[in-house]
Simulated assay, not measured.
Amino acid sequence: MEKLTIVVPAFNEEEVLNNTLQRLLKIESKLIQAQILDYSSDILVVDDGSADQTWKIIKHYHEKNKSIKGIRLSRNFGHQNALIAGFQAVVASADLVVTIDADLQDDPESINEMINCFAGGAEIVYGVRNDRTTDTWFKRNSAALFYKLLNILGVKLIPNHADFRLMSQRAVKTFLQYKERNLFIRGVIPLLGFSTAKVYYKRTPRLAGKSKYPFKKMLAFAWNGITSFSIIPVRF
């Protein structure tokens, strides 16, 4: 049995965090009771400089259940840096790491299938959205354009995969050897070279709150991805 840590980056997620932690705890508890996961499996929430009650909620749950842990960043460093902070915190203790956003629009029930893929030999398991009907027309089409553009520029991404994935401890250690600033995580992971698998799921609507990726942030994220992996913009 392996120890799993679920890493959840959270920025101003007070409206959804209670539901998120309860669902993730329930999923992990079932897997522990079925003797699929080690009893020490846990959840780490990375508070990315929230200005609301996010940290207070994390502390409240930790006091009731020590398997819920938290890291509070000194300011808002951004989603990708919050994920990296989570990796750095758990890499020495976790055999498996699952990353998932706090809004749970990615289906946490797919974690069981991801673990099955790991048992079958995959060290990286990508969560892939096969139904985005809950997204707006703009978001669906801008995402398709983003993947197409990066593919043209030679950046090999997993289409319709964001940051919901399972990684073995060995894969996480290898990822953390990258020392670049502003790492474009979903572009780096496919370069690691480990055996991979995909788990497909339907994306669901956000339970409450607002997306933390408004149009301006989406553009900055896309530009970071392009410039991190292609010299074509420099040549242009």
Rank of each mutant, 00 (worst) to 15 (best):
Q53N: 15
L219T: 08
V172I: 14
L183S: 09
G225N: 07
S228D: 03
K217F: 08
S41V: 05
S67D: 02
K179G: 14
N81W: 02
A82D: 04
Q80C: 11
R235H: 09
K216Q: 15
V8S: 06
R206W: 05
E109Q: 15
K198N: 15
D103F: 03
K148G: 12
E109V: 14
N76L: 04
I100L: 03
G209H: 02
D107L: 09
E15T: 00
N112M: 15
V188G: 09
A143V: 14
N141T: 02
L153V: 10
E13G: 00
T133I: 09
R181G: 12
G86D: 01
M114S: 07
I231G: 02
I158Y: 09
D131C: 12
L153P: 07
A10F: 04
V16E: 02
P159F: 03
N130T: 09
K26P: 05
V234E: 15
Y126A: 09
A94G: 01
I43M: 04
N224Y: 05
P159N: 05
I232H: 00
I226T: 10
L44K: 04
Q177P: 05
S142Q: 08
A208C: 07
A34I: 00
M218V: 13
K198E: 15
T54C: 00
G209L: 02
R186T: 13
S211A: 08
Q53M: 12
V128I: 13
W137Q: 08
K56W: 03
G225V: 07
V7R: 06
D131W: 07
N65W: 06
L149H: 02
V91M: 10
L149Q: 04
E123H: 10
L145W: 14
M1H: 11
I185V: 12
S41M: 01
N19E: 09
G120V: 10
P205V: 13
E15D: 09
L150R: 07
T136V: 05
H60R: 15
G86Y: 02
L17W: 04
V46H: 00
Q88K: 15
S74V: 11
P214H: 06
I57T: 07
V45P: 06
N12P: 02
N224H: 09
P233I: 05
T227A: 08
G209F: 01
L157W: 03
G86T: 03
T20R: 08
N19S: 12
E113P: 08
